[in-house]
Each structure stands twice: as structure tokens, then as C-alpha cells.
Design a protein around this nucleic acid. Structure first.
Length: 935
RNA sequence: GGGCCUAUAGCUCAGAUGCGGUUAGAGCGCACGCCUGAUAAGCGUGAGGUCGGAAGUUCGACUCUUCCUAGGCCCA
């Protein structure tokens, strides 16, 4: 007889092999077909809202691991909150305006662009953005991210553009917008102002020159020892082209300066520089023969005037704490129109913000010798000129970190131009923002310090750009007096038009069509206007998303519960959103802000094409499936840098298989189980099954706590560990005998099935926010009636208090300790070739007396837990000295030994038993099986 | 150059409140073995860290301080 046929072996169609690359799209289609997002919304009506407001990625290019990580994290949060009883609405968005797209379009259009109107170029940009919105949408959906993908928000949609204009109007109305000349980063190649966020630093080779600025003759009257001498201040610069714009020389107020007598080109001269740099400079100049003739405190030289080396103009001495002794001479060449610190110190001293450079980077007509020259080309010419006038001490080259344009990668310049700013202090914006920061929960906590110091120290917000693809600064300039028309009526009119036609109409309609009736210049009463042609910084666009999305959509609200982005957004979106919201509403647009780190390679280095360590999401999806990518996001502590490598992914895919297989085994043993009909009441369940349910509650507790704190790595470890240690290696292994050999409908078997059914359902729900595909796939195989079509409509399991039994847990902790020591005894016997499978063993066990007292009546329970054929309690002395015996490690005082069990192996249940061979009609099976088979 | 952050076994994370105190724990991977009724599965055993480095505070530090190194984000 084939006794195997009489066993209840596991059966399931749930495949062992995931084949995720193929199966995931089927599950995605299922979600699409049932319209999961819509179903979730309908079923969640009336539940408390949880709003995770999506930060809009830029609609350019394909997604990368960073964006994938971000979206998966958001998805796991939204799903876990949804399953925790919230109505977790998720509206994804895209940032559509801005230079990168315009740049790409420039490339595609090439020369054709010259003949196109701004409106036509904008249409091209719009199409370009739309294309990548669609691409990225598909890529995000492929990751299993559930959201309102049919109705995302786009910063280029008409209503969004109208909101941008409306919000800008509020800043004009409250008086915080100012127009000012200010040095800003300027890309002469792109002919545009760049935000701080738009420059990147690369190494660049610059000239390095030391230049003499001679004192005016009568400036040194108070220093008799310098009378009649040729005295100069020595400066150092790596931008010779800014020398024509020099208006001052900055010294540090706390440094000591010296006048040193030197011989230079056969002339006796006196040079002034910082004492701390004297030696270094002299050796640099190759001058060994010098003598200090006087020392100064910087203060003594303040406001004295030097002569510009080749222009008839003074250069006065100013004091500034930005001066350092790291390099140069301690005397800093200051061109207020060409440097941030130069500018600031110039404001203090009332100097002109002089910047005689045009949009193309050419010197204007005011500049003698170099008018019309591109500034970078002027570098050698300036050096030459300085040499001619005898002002150049030394010329060299220096490789250093220098700002470059983020798009064209060309070096940028600092240049003062007329720009629009939102003032940080005029209306107290900075102070109010700092106060609001304290109202927000920052996760991790140090994010607060980070953004606080950024807001504390940032300059005014430059909101204007000289480009085409963006929302215009919708104000009018009076042709007669240059006054600005930016009142409520203007903005109301523009907002109306934008809502109907989009911001493009600013470019297609005439001034008269755009102006509200009866518009007059507030300054001169004039009626002739031109449009401002600058557009807004795109950070302003995304910064108003709380107004354009959270406040506008009925299903959302502001402030959001959570903003979640990479830690770079402390200066980006968190920052601009805060300023916009505080500036117009006096409160932060978010209650909490969560940040994650950056994706780096397996060694902790950032990913870059040049290092060749870039991994693309698509590679991972093709090879392992999006599920493994999700598991990666879950497994890593995202608050730090997040490492990824093919090795890490391989590990994760193995961990995935383990979890999947555990689910499969659970399913396989439920093929004939109906939870409604076959469940056994808790009180009637076997002890070990009740213990399993107790342990299950621990994992529920751990996961729920982890989810509530967004600590997915803890949930992942808890789930994985549970599957491997508790289920696979212990509980399920022990259960096999009972599940397989008992009569199918016996209470013993139904008890086990009741436990594993509950375990399975609980486990799948706990997994669902992370392993969204697999939990959904397995959900379909779970027996019994289900209320919902998708597991994502279910709630996370609650802790079942009545299943918690600490007393039972204590008892089983001891059993597991004994089991662990017994396993070592079994292993010893195995190594000695006495047994193979543990079922061949009989365990001889000596326990400490109090433990023995507790378990002496549980021989058969322990036997089954050890998965052996026989168990005998023996006195300690009987085992001591036996080379097969093992001392207890987990349970000190225990001694255990494994030996071959008596009797024959039952062909059906594989237990060795003396009863095998005693039944004439079934001579190869044991009495236990005999009763099952002959029943 | 400045601000913030990180650094525990080959890998991913721990030791539940951003607080110093028994021989630093898991899982994975690895090695060896078993099983062939979870089988491109399953089980067992074992070997691996002195907590990035140095100094200091302390009766005592992986946990506190300083400095250094490496890496990340932001800024210059």
C-alpha cells in the first residue's frame, strides 16, 4: 500500500517561484481593473484624513533609484496609514516649469527657436513636460505605488498657474516684494540668473594674481614712517576680470597687518598685508629680503583710499569678517557687483553695486580698455594691463572648486542685475518662519536645526528669472516713469485669464488686453505700460502647492500631515513651501516633515556615471521585480544614506523567497480548511497552537509600532525573523507531523489549521504595505469568505488581547531552550553517524529538578516538539561521561543525549516505534497510523 | 572652508523613552552535515565583531567630551 496517499500533504497553486517580472504587471492590471484607489476612497469616507502631500519630482528624464525610493516610502506610509483606519489620500504631482526642460527644448529646437514666438516655445516645453509626466507616471505605477494617478497635480496646469499668480499677488499686496540690484549667479551661456540651487561646483583652473593697490599720496600722513614711500596694499584674486570693477579692499577687523619694505623690480617699496600671511606671501613672491617697518591694527587703515591700478578711481579700505588667513594676503579685492560678501560689505560702506557686465558677459562701454570683451577672455588682458602699469606682482594658475551652471556646466559669474526679491525681513518673514519651524515635527529631529539655520541665514529670496518656461511675474512697468503696477486689480484680472487660458496668455495677449480697466501708474498716473518679462523661480511654483493642491481639492486639506522628501529639500521644497505659506498665511503648510538620505553604492559612495556605480530601477525590476526594490526600501534605515548593490539585492531576493515560501507552506496546509466551518475555539486548541497565536501577537505589536513610527526596517526584520525563526524552523516544522498524519478533520489537525490560518491572514496584512504585490497575490489563495477584493482594503490586524498568555509564553521559552540543547545532542549523534533524520533518535534527557517537575508529565509534547521518536527522562549520572551527551547551554544543568530509537520506522509517519510490525493487515506502520488508516 | 548627519560581524538591522554598568545580540551569507512528504524547498551545527581611529572624563564607555579619518546632504 502507498501510505503517502493517506497523508494530508500540502497542496496549493500558489507558485513557489515568484516570477515577479511577469506576475507584477498582472497584479497591477487587477488594481487598475477594480480601480483600487477609487474603491479605497469610497470605503474610507468619514474616516479621519491622513494627508501625505507629494513633493513634485521634476518632469524630465526617467526615474532613478532616489525617486523610486522616495515614492515607495510614501506608498508604504500611505498604505500603512490607510490600513490603520485613516482615509489616506494620495495625490501625486509633477514640477513642470523651469530651466532644465527649457534647456532640453533648446537643444531639440536648435536654430529653429529663433523664429518661434515665446508662446510657441512654451507649447513645446509643455509637450515635453507632459511626455515625461506620462513616462514617470508609468514608472511609478510599476513600482506598485497606489494613488490618484488619473488626476495628478501639475504645476503647469492652468488652475495651478493661476494659483501661482494669485499667491504672488499676495506678496506684492503685503509689500514684501522688492526690486533691487544684487549680485547673483549668472550664466552667460544660458543668459540667465541662477538660483543657489542651480549652481554646481566643479574643479576649474583659474588665473591667480597678486596685485598692488598703491595708496594715494596724502592718505598716510598719520604714519610718519611711511611718508614719501611708495606704499601699496597687496591683494590676491582668482578672477582678474573683476579688477576693473574693484571699489574696495577688505581687511579683517581682528587681524594684524604689517608694512614691509621690499625691493621690487629695482624699486624700494612698502607693501601692506596681513602679518599672518607675510612669510608665506614673500616666499611665494620669491622675496627673501624684506623688513617690517610698521604694524597696524586693521582699524587704523579703515576708509583710507588706494588708487585703482589702471582706472582713475579710488579703492577704499573696508573691514569685513569674511576675510580669512587661509590663502591670499589677508587683503581682499572687493568688487561689490561681483561677489556676495563684497556686496554685503559694500552695503555697509555705502558703495555702489557696480557691475559693468551685460547679459552676454561682455564689459559695457564704461569699462576702459576692455569694453565689449567677454569677461573670461578678459582675464589675460587684465593681467597684461596690470603688468604694463607695474601693478602685477605674480601670476600663476590655480585649480579650485568653482561654481558652474547646473545645465550647461559652464562656469558662471557673479553679476549684479535688477531682480525681484521677496524680502526676508521687510515684513518679518524670517522671524515668522523661524517661529513656525518650532510648531512642526521634524523627523529625524535634527532636521529642525538644519532648516532653522538655513532660514536664519539666508539672503532675500530672488524670485525672478530671465527665461521663457515658467509663470511670469505678472506686473506692469510704466513706460513713462518706470513705476511698477502690481495692485490687486491687476492680479485679479491676470488670475482670471490664467484660469481660462493658462499663463501662456501673458505672452500672447497685448498689454491692453491684459490690463484691467482704468489702470494707471501709481507713481505718475501714466497709462502706457509694458509687461514684465521675467518669470518666477520654479521653487515658487512648487512652494505654492499647498495652496494650489491641498486647499483647492475637496478631498484634501491644509496643512498636510506629512511632507516627505530627501534631506536636500530642507533647502528646497520644505524651505520654499514654508516661506510661501508663512508669507501668505502665517503658518507652516505641514504638521510634520520626514526626510530620508541619499542612495549610495555598496561602499557608501554616491552614485555617478563617472564612477560607474549607478544602478537603475529598471535593471532591478527586470532582474528581481519591483517587489524586491520595495523590500530594499523597507529593509534599509532610510534616515541615513541608503546603500544598494547587486549583492544587497541578491540577499533581499533570498529573504523575499523565504517569506514567500513560508506563505506558500501555510497556504498549502489550508487546502481543505474552511475558516467558517472548521475553526477550533481558542480554549480547545492544542497548547502549542495557542502559544503560536501568542507569538503572533508579538509580531503584530512590533509591526504596528514600526508602521506608526515609519520604521519600516523594523517591520521588515520582524516579519522576516518571524518567518524564519518562529515559523519555519520551529512551529511549522513541529506541526508537519500533526498536519500530515492526523485524520483530515480531526480536532488536532483543525486546531493547527486554525492557528496557521490566523497566522497567514495576519502575516499577509502585516506585509501588505511593503510586499504589496505578493500579499495581494497570496490573498487570492486564502480560503474562506473575504469582505474585500484587495488586501489593501483590509485593516492591519489588531492585537488580540485574549490570545496573549504570558504564562504560556514563559513555559514555552523553557521548552525552546531545552529544544535548542537537544538539537545539539541530536547533531552530535548525527556527526557520529548514529542517526540521520532527527526522527530516528531517542532522546535521553536529564533536567534540573525544578524544570523536571514542571515537564515530567509532558513527555509526548516534548517528543513532538523535538521532532524525535522517543524521549526518556533519566538521572543526570546516567549521561555524565557519555561521549554522546551534551551539557545544556540554553538551559544550564541540563544533560541530553541522542541515540537510535528502538523499534522500526513507520512507513507512514516515519516515527520509529515498537508497534511497527504488530498489525498483520498493515505490517509496516505504527499503531497511531494503523488507527488512522483503518478508520 | 562652514553647517548638519553617519560610521556595531562580509550584508541588513538589534539590544523599546535622543539618558554610560553582567561574557555586544538576531537574521542573511559562509562552512560542515542531515533530509528528500514545503524539493530550483526544508532542518541542524559551527566559525565570524571589542563596537571607524586616537586621546580624555569616569570606579566603569560601543554608549559622554575633544581631535582625526572615511562617507553623505546643504552651503561657500
Amino acid at each position: 500500500m502507498d501510505y503517502k496517499q493517506t497523508l494530508n500533504l500540502p497542496k496549493t497553486d500558489f507558485p513557489m517561484k515568484a516570477n515577479l517580472a511577469k506576475r507584477e504587471p498582472e497584479i497591477l492590471k487587477f488594481w487598475q481593473d477594480i480601480n483600487l484607489y477609487k474603491r479605497l476612497r469610497e470605503k474610507s469616507k468619514g474616516k479621519p484624513l491622513f494627508i501625505l502631500h507629494d513633493g513634485p519630482p521634476y518632469a524630465n528624464g526617467h526615474i532613478h533609484l532616489g525617486t523610486a525610493l522616495n515614492k515607495i516610502l510614501k506608498d508604504m506610509i500611505v498604505k500603512s496609514r490607510q490600513m490603520s483606519g485613516f482615509d489616506a489620500v494620495y495625490v501625486p504631482g509633477w514640477d513642470c516649469h523651469g530651466l532644465p526642460i527649457e534647456h532640453q527644448v533648446d537643444k531639440e529646437l536648435g536654430a529653429k527657436k529663433q523664429n518661434m514666438s515665446p508662446a510657441e516655445v512654451r507649447q513645446y516645453c509643455r509637450n515635453y513636460a507632459e511626455k515625461f509626466v506620462n513616462i514617470q507616471r508609468d514608472e511609478f505605477k510599476r513600482l506598485g505605488v497606489i494613488g490618484d494617478w488619473e488626476n495628478p497635480y501639475l504645476t503647469m496646469s492652468y488652475d495651478y498657474e493661476a494659483t501661482i499668480a494669485r499667491e504672488l499677488g499676495k506678496f506684492f499686496a503685503n509689500g514684501s516684494v522688492i526690486k533691487a540690484k544684487k549680485p547673483i549667479y549668472w550664466c552667460i551661456h544660458c543668459r540667465t540668473a541662477l538660483a543657489e540651487a542651480e549652481v554646481e561646483y566643479y574643479d576649474h583652473e583659474s588665473p591667480s594674481i597678486y596685485v598692488k593697490f598703491p595708496f594715494k599720496e596724502d592718505e598716510l600722513l598719520s604714519f610718519p614712517e611711511l611718508q614719501g614711500k611708495k606704499v601699496s596694499v597687496i591683494i590676491w584674486t582668482t578672477t582678474p576680470w573683476t579688477i576693473p570693477s574693484n571699489l574696495a579692499i577688505a581687511l579683517h577687523p581682528d587681524f594684524e597687518y604689517v608694512a614691509a619694505k621690499v625691493k621690487h623690480e629695482n624699486d624700494s617699496e612698502v607693501w601692506i598685508l596681513a602679518e599672518g600671511l607675510l612669510e608665506q606671501c614673500m616666499s611665494e613672491f620669491g622675496i627673501s629680503d624684506y623688513k617690517i617697518v610698521k604694524k597696524f591694527a586693521a582699524k587704523e587703515l579703515e576708509r583710507l583710499a588706494c588708487k585703482h591700478p589702471f582706472i582713475d578711481r579710488d579703492s577704499i579700505i573696508v573691514l569685513g569678517t569674511h576675510v580669512t588667513l587661509d590663502s591670499g594676503t589677508g587683503c581682499v579685492h572687493t568688487a561689490p557687483g561681483h561677489g556676495r560678501e563684497d556686496y554685503e560689505v559694500a552695503l555697509e560702506y555705502g558703495l555702489d553695486i557696480y557691475s559693468p557686465v551685460d547679459d552676454d558677459g561682455r564689459f559695457t562701454k564704461d569699462v576702459p580698455f576692455f569694453a565689449g570683451t567677454i569677461v573670461f577672455d578678459a582675464n589675460p588682458m587684465v593681467s597684461q594691463k596690470l603688468k604694463e602699469v607695474g601693478a602685477l606682482i605674480k601670476e600663476d594658475k590655480l585649480s579650485h572648486s568653482y561654481p558652474h551652471c547646473w545645465r550647461c556646466k559652464q562656469p558662471v559669474i557673479f553679476r549684479a542685475t535688477e531682480q525681484w526679491f521677496i524680502s526676508m525681513d521687510k515684513t518679518g518673514l524670517r522671524q515668522k518662519a523661524l517661529e513656525c519651524i518650532n510648531q512642526v515635527e521634524w523627523i529625524p529631529y535634527w532636521g529642525k536645526d538644519r532648516i532653522y539655520s538655513m532660514i536664519e541665514n539666508r539672503p532675500d529670496w530672488c524670485i525672478s528669472r530671465q527665461r521663457a518656461w515658467g509663470v511670469p511675474i505678472t506686473v506692469f512697468i510704466c513706460n513713462d516713469c518706470g513705476g511698477v503696477l502690481a495692485n490687486e486689480a491687476v492680479f485679479d484680472r491676470v488670475v482670471d485669464l490664467f484660469e481660462k487660458e493658462g499663463a501662456d496668455c501673458w505672452f500672447t495677449l497685448s498689454v491692453d488686453e491684459l490690463l484691467p480697466d482704468g489702470a494707471k501708474c501709481p507713481d505718475c498716473g501714466g497709462k502706457n505700460f509694458r509687461k514684465e518679462t521675467d518669470i518666477l523661480d520654479v521653487w515658487f511654483d512648487s512652494g505654492v502647492s499647498h495652496a494650489a493642491v491641498l486647499e483647492k481639492r475637496p478631498e484634501l486639506r491644509s496643512p498636510a500631515d506629512l511632507y516627505l522628501e530627501g534631506s536636500d529639500q530642507h533647502r528646497g521644497w520644505f524651505h520654499s513651501s514654508l516661506l510661501e505659506s508663512v508669507g501668505t498665511r502665517e503658518r507652516a503648510p505641514y504638521k510634520a516633515v520626514l526626510t530620508h538620505g541619499f542612495v549610495v553604492d555598496g561602499k557608501g559612495y554616491k552614485m555617478s556615471k563617472s564612477l560607474g556605480n549607478v544602478i537603475y530601477p529598471q535593471e532591478v525590476i527586470d532582474k528581481y521585480g519591483a517587489e524586491v526594490l520595495r523590500l530594499w526600501v523597507a529593509a534599509e534605515d532610510y534616515r541615513d544614506d541608503i546603500r544598494i548593490s547587486m549583492d544587497i539585492l541578491k540577499r533581499l531576493s533570498e529573504a523575499y523567497r523565504r517569506v514567500r515560501n513560508t506563505c506558500r507552506f501555510l497556504l498549502g496546509n489550508l487546502y481543505d480548511f474552511s475558516p467558517e466551518k472548521d475553526s477550533v475555539d481558542y480554549e480547545n486548541m492544542e497548547e502549542i497552537d495557542r502559544y503560536a497565536l501568542h507569538e503572533l501577537q508579538n509580531i503584530v505589536k512590533r509591526c504596528r509600532r514600526a508602521y506608526s513610527r515609519y520604521e519600516f526596517f523594523k517591520a521588515y526584520h520582524a516579519i522576516h525573523n518571524y518567518c524564519v525563526v518562529h515559523l519555519s524552523a520551529f512551529y511549522l516544522d513541529v506541526l508537519k507531523d500533526r498536519l500530515y498524519t492526523s485524520p483530515p478533520a480531526s480536532k488536532a489537525r483543525r486546531s493547527a489549521q486554525t492557528a496557521i490560518y490566523n497566522i497567514l491572514v495576519t502575516l499577509l496584512k502585516l506585509m501588505a504595505p511593503i510586499l504589496s504585490f505578493t500579499s495581494e497575490e497570496a490573498w487570492k489563495y486564502v480560503p474562506g469568505e473575504k469582505e474585500h477584493l484587495s488586501i489593501h482594503e483590509e485593516a492591519l490586524p489588531d492585537v488580540v488581547e485574549s490570545w496573549i498568555n504570558e504564562e504560556l509564553a514563559d513555559r514555552w521559552e523553557t521548552i525552546l531552550a531545552i529544544r535548542s540543547d537537544v538539537a545539539r545532542a541530536v547533531e552530535k549523534a548525527r556527526q557520529s553517524k548514529i542517526i540521520g533524520h532527527s526522527l530516528e533518535a531517542c532522546i535521553f534527557l536529564a533536567l534540573p529538578s525544578e524544570v523536571f517537575e514542571e515537564f515530567k508529565g509532558d513527555k509526548d509534547l516534548l517528543r513532538s516538539v523535538f521532532i524525535v521518536s522517543d524521549l526518556r527522562f533519566v538521572p543526570r549520572e546516567e549521561l555524565e561521561g557519555d561521549e554522546l551527551s551534551v551539557e545544556g547551554e540554553k538551559l544550564p544543568g541540563l544533560v541530553a543525549k541522542a541515540d537510535l530509537a528502538d523499534g522500526e520506522k513507520c512507513e507512514r509517519c516515519w516515527v520509529r516505534d515498537k508497534s511497527v510490525g504488530t498489525f498483520d493487515d498493515h505490517p509496516t506502520i505504527c499503531s497511531r497510523c494503523y488507527h488512522v488508516v483503518s478508520a
